[in-house]
Structure formats: structure tokens, C-alpha cells
Design a protein around this nucleic acid. Structure first.
Lengths: 169, 169
DNA sequence: ATGTATGCAAACCATTTGCAATGAC
DNA sequence: GTCATTGCAAATGGTTTGCATACAT
């Protein structure tokens, strides 16, 4: 269906993550389509969380057309390949992030902003932690509260029903 | 719309949680309907997580008719009242639980079962933890992995695609 | 050439909403 | 008697699916 001349979506082929994805595709007899590389490359440029909507807009903003289904399919593929993780925070649409070093998610229940903080102590604690009759693979720690920006606002405004962040439902 | 004679939905009025809910309703000028008490009372009888579907079936199994909307509305109300919490684990429909002592959720990615484990060390750690420019209210720790039952199964069956638990999408 | 991946539109399904009827106050 | 709450049915919206076409191999 695509009739456009290909853009250079394979630019970052030297990147170990891209390499890993490529190997994953090989190992599973899957095809190396420009869409898949375009999606992965754009995800690598994102620092933090993103929604499917935002990811598609980012890619298409670069003049590369992808269907919504392909974005969903490929992100799912990246999850299987353990490159991406999916999160659903309270009251928000699904968000995704590239898997990096373990970190805690701070979610502001007022504006919906999500911040990651590294916590080596906690990581060490979890690393050592063993569970009865359960073999842990990975974990997610979500901390809900109020960010300083919203805290400042609510000092002035009594009951803020400010939900301008589009990630909030 | 209900034409049935009322059943004794206020049975547990002595319970501090029910009392708290009652006070909450008073404080917010909301009405004390039999549906609200029936829903709360049934939630109190559940040990662990439940879906909206399961909750409604439990209530109606007791011969008390409630609409799906009312279940959703009331559970949302209980969330506002800080009696119930909502969780969305990877690849599952939303689940709810009564707020109790802090605990870790162990989620089996094979069968979807969720187990809670108390971890006083972790709770103490989180209690002491402070974040920059962020005022924490509550947190959720999800640990994904394989339960012993599924681990045993996969020793025999190579690639189990067993997803019989209805909570898995 | 072969069969997988894409794109589109339709289907899905949990959740939300609008509104008339009910019942808590 | 009022007006919040219920129940129903319809709407919503993120996600999935079916199928014809394109293209990676």
C-alpha cells in the first residue's frame, strides 16, 4: 500500500537495541519492514513515557505514514522482544516506555504527569528479594501523589479540577 | 425501578469501614441507598482482587439485583472514599481490592492469578522514602513472574498458551 | 513467487453517559 | 415534594480483527 520512496529508517542500525530487535526478527522469522524500524527508531528518541497516539503523531510528524494497527502491532512486538514495557496508571490511557534501568514512577494524580526516578537502594532490595512459590521476572513501582507544580497551584485555587494533560482520561 | 422488598443490606453497620462510608456519604450530602451498602458489604466479604463483573455476579448471586452502572458508580465512589483501590495489571481487565495494609502484588503472567504478600521491610522503606518535588500519597508494587503451579506445568508442556483465567484479556 | 505485514474499516468490549423512572430525604 | 440515584440502552474510545493489497524474502 505504501507508494512513497523509502526514507532512511535504518539509520541507527549500529545501535545495540536496534541490532537486538533485528536479531529478534531473524530468530522469529519475521520481516524487517521500514515501519518496524521507523517505530523503534522514534521510540528510542523518546525520553520517558508515551501513548500510542503520541507515538504515531511523532512518526507521522516526520513525514513517515504508519497505520494505527501497525503502531499497535509493532509496539506489541517490541514488548515481546523485551524492548518496551506497557503501563496503565490510575485513570489514564496505556503508556509505554523503553525498558531501561529499573526506576520508580511518580505519577501526579492532579495533572497526570509521570516522572521516573532511579533508586539504587530499592533496586538492590528488589534484586535480593525472593518470593515463596513465585519466580519473579520484572516489577513496577508506581507512586501516586502531587507534583510540586500542582501543589503550588492548589495553594491558590481551592479545588482544582485541572486535567489538561491529554493522557488523563 | 426496584420493586422487591428490601433485604437487610445494612447488616454490618457496626463495622468501622461501613461506618466510615456512611460518614463519607453524610459529609458529601449523598444518599444511603441499599445498592451502595449491598455493594460495600459484598466487597468486604471478598479476600483479594475482583473485577466489576465478578462483583456484580457475587451480589446478584445473593439475590440482590444491581445494574452494571451502579456497580461502576459505587465502586468509583468507594475509590473516592479511599475504601477501594483500582489496579490494572499487564494484559488484564481492571481489578479492584479493598484498601488494607500495604502489600506487594505477585502477578503470574501465565495464568493471571494475583497474590498479595505483606512485606514490612518494604513498607518501612517506602514510609521513610521522600521524593524531590513530589508529595507521595500511596504506591503500588507489581511483581510479574510465574507462579509455582504454572512453573510445574511448563516443565511438562513446552510452550503453554494456557490462559483460562477469565481475568486475562 | 510466496506468504508475511500493512492499511483500512469494521468489530469488540470495558466503561461512560443520557435520560426517564424511582425512592431517599 | 425534591432532586439524587438507579437502570436501561445507547454512545464512547482505546484496542483488536478480517481481509485485500503491498512488499520483504
Amino acid at each position: 500500500m505504501k507508494t512513497e520512496p523509502k526514507i532512511d529508517v535504518n539509520a541507527d542500525i549500529a545501535d545495540p537495541v536496534v541490532r537486538g530487535f533485528s536479531d529478534y526478527l531473524d530468530a522469529h522469522d519475521m520481516r524487517k519492514t521500514p515501519e518496524r524500524y521507523a517505530i523503534l527508531n522514534h521510540i528510542m528518541g523518546i525520553n520517558g513515557h508515551f501513548t500510542i497516539e503520541e507515538l504515531q503523531q511523532l512518526i507521522e510528524g516526520d513525514g513517515f505514514r504508519v497505520s494505527r494497527s501497525t503502531v499497535y502491532n509493532t509496539v506489541e512486538l517490541l514488548i515481546q522482544a523485551k524492548i518496551v514495557r506497557r503501563h496503565v496508571f490510575e485513570g489514564m490511557v496505556a503508556q509505554y516506555e523503553r525498558i531501561t534501568l529499573p526506576h520508580t514512577h511518580l505519577i501526579c494524580t492532579s495533572c497526570g504527569k509521570v516522572k521516573e526516578v532511579r533508586d539504587p537502594n530499592f533496586a538492590a532490595f528488589m534484586n535480593a528479594r525472593r518470593f515463596n512459590a513465585f519466580n519473579a521476572d520484572h516489577y513496577s513501582l508506581y507512586v501516586y501523589g502531587t507534583c510540586s507544580t500542582c501543589a503550588r497551584k492548589s495553594k491558590r485555587i481551592r479545588q482544582s479540577s485541572d486535567r489538561r494533560d491529554k493522557k488523563l482520561k
